[in-house]
Amino acid sequence: MSSLMEFKEVDVHYGPIQALKKVSLSVNEGEIVTLIGANGAGKSTLLMSIFGQPRISSGEIIYRGEDISKKSSHYVASHGLAQSPEGRRIFPGMTVEENLLMGTIPIGMDHAEEDMRKMFDLFPRLEERRNQRASTMSGGEQQMLAIARALMSRPKLLLLDEPSLGLAPIIVKQIFEILKDVASTGMTIFLVEQNANHALKLADRGYVMVNGEIRMSGTGDELLVNPEVREAYLGGH
């Protein structure tokens, strides 16, 4: 397996505060990799640094053999990296279809119809609401839309930032079921989550981040049974 994206000793500073400390991790083609950690550990910072927001202060981010750490956000986003951002950030005044079409910006509208059909197969709820404004949908539906919108650009690597944020447990379960379906199509997924239980069950490999450092790594199953992880993120037992 070849590495699709790799962080090499990445440091990120917010002014005098160091948010990421020599972070190294890799995502291989076809894998689901998850990054778990508590609030403020630096998970979202890591994800956003892929897009240069914030810029890394040292290290390299290699994506398909190229260092992308100095490229502009839209360059990165239009070269096969799609993101479902934290807090979903769908376009509230646009319909579901229009939101999906916004996802095709990097590749143009050539495959729009075909891909939209695929998204509606994956997320039947979205088809029911296709001409409805996105703001009128429930949180879970909005999250589905955010994921579908990211997939519309036919990404090589799908980045998900806390898809379970603010959703009821039963909806979270649904979202993870769908992510499993997405993964079964061969999509490479990098998932940043606080919900360690769901994330580790889904993932092939996982990293645990504490205070801006990678504390542990291993396969999903290994981490699930690791006493330290259980203590910190899975509520003991």
């Binding site: 956000s73 799609a82 993101q83 769908i90 376009f91 910006i105 650009s153």
Partner: peptide, 19 residues
């Protein structure tokens, strides 16, 4: 559509690769 998207959510626009 890009103008309207920018009005609704600039960060989302940039995450979608809009210049």
């Amino acid at each position: 559509r890009a103008w309207e998207a920018l009005r609704e959510d600039e960060i989302a626009c940039r995450s979608l690769g809009l210049n």
